[in-house]
């Protein structure tokens, strides 16, 4: 493995990526020109409702989009100096699992039901480290211990259905981190778990991030998870990034009407006791179909602060402070506004 140590801290740079899905209904622009970057040791959160393109973004970094119907129509994914989109499938296989690893939402279905946990983890060592089966199994047990699974030796001989949801997600994390990857992409890793287990898994991921020096891309619809773990956040809506900011800024000074709506719609514990039952805030309307996006800003039909211009032109990302950018006409320079 030739790891080029570069002076810059930029580990992953996604530039203007567009992912289209072709179907009989037309072309769905699942991801429409998004750019973000990930530093070494950073945790980037990508938030959005289901169908906003966040999972597709995650899979496309690993080149796991099924083609057809999917197609990465434009853009670059620069990982450690090389464009992943230009690699051959063979070269890409040496990156998958080895230098970029991924965990999925459903620990129930993302482990293969017919192989033991130990088998599935040891496969990583056999594949990427060239270990023999016996050594690989020993390493697998060691990984299970690192993700704090009790009795790792016994567990390694069990099948996925014999483990609880939280255990399975730990096993998934053990498998993902087996080969010490530089990036861990976590696609809704806590969504299918109980709240108490969620907290444990997040703590575990944060601790392992320090131990393994891994950067994490955390994909979720749960702003609470983002608040716990992420340093920078990208909010996605209908295939576009609508707001990008350090986590602190985002929670304190959410600027895009969509982000504000998301924050407001989190129910607050104790509010009913204090103020009596009242309506929960929500964002009216539904996410538009990717086949029939509005002509202007995609959020326009649901936006409380919409203007005439929003209906006709998609706004660019405008800076509100140094690292805080918002895709909304409200923050465009007054001179450029057309209303």
């Amino acid at each position: 493995m030739n790891m080029k140590v570069k002076p810059n801290t930029n580990l992953l740079d996604v530039k203007g990526m567009k992912i289209h899905f072709h179907s009989s209904e037309g072309v769905a622009k699942a991801v429409d020109g998004i750019s973000f970057h990930l530093d070494r040791g950073e945790v980037l959160g990508i938030v959005g409702e289901s169908g906003c393109g966040k999972s597709v973004t995650a899979k496309s970094i690993m080149r796991l989009i099924p083609t057809p119907p999917g197609k990465i129509a434009a853009g670059q994914i620069i990982f450690d100096g090389t464009d992943l989109l230009k690699l051959s499938i063979q070269q890409m296989r040496r990156i998958r699992g080895n230098r970029i690893a991924m965990i999925f939402q459903e620990p129930m279905t993302s482990l293969n039901p017919v192989f033991t946990i130990g088998d599935q983890i040891s496969e990583m060592f056999i594949l990427h480290r060239g270990l023999r089966r016996k050594q690989a199994l020993e390493q697998a047990v060691e990984m299970l211990a690192k993700v704090q699974i009790p009795e790792p030796c016994k567990r390694s001989r069990e099948y996925p259905h014999q483990l609880s949801g939280g255990m399975r997600q730990r096993a998934m994390i053990a498998m993902a981190l087996a080969c010490d990857p530089q990036i861990l992409i976590a696609d809704e890793p806590t969504t299918a778990l109980d709240v108490t287990i969620q907290a444990q898994i997040i703590d575990l991921m944060l601790q392992l991030k320090e131990d393994f020096h891994t950067s994490i891309i955390m994909i979720t619809h749960d702003l609470g998870v983002i608040a716990e773990i992420a340093q920078t956040v990208a909010v996605m809506y209908a295939g576009k990034i609508v707001e990008q900011a350090p986590a602190v800024d985002l929670f304190d000074r959410a600027s895009h009407p969509y982000t504000q709506g998301l924050l407001k719609s989190i129910p607050k514990l104790g509010r009913r006791a204090a103020k009596g039952r009242c309506d929960l805030s929500e964002i009216p309307g539904i996410v538009p179909s990717l086949y029939r996006l509005p002509q202007g800003c995609s959020f326009y039909p649901r936006c409380e602060k919409a203007h005439a211009v929003c209906n006709s032109l998609m706004p660019d990302l405008h800076s509100v402070s140094e690292h805080h950018r918002v895709r909304c006409w409200l923050y465009a320079d007054k001179g450029k506004r057309k209303d």
Binding site: R96, G97, L111
Partner: peptide, 25 residues
């Protein structure tokens, strides 16, 4: 199935993904 996506994400060659992880099921 998701576990087949997992197998691809591990970097396994196609023969292993198809004939070991998928076919066995």
């Amino acid at each position: 199935e998701e576990y087949v996506v997992t197998a691809w994400a591990k970097g396994l060659p196609p023969l292993k993904v198809i004939f070991k992880h998928a076919l066995r099921n």
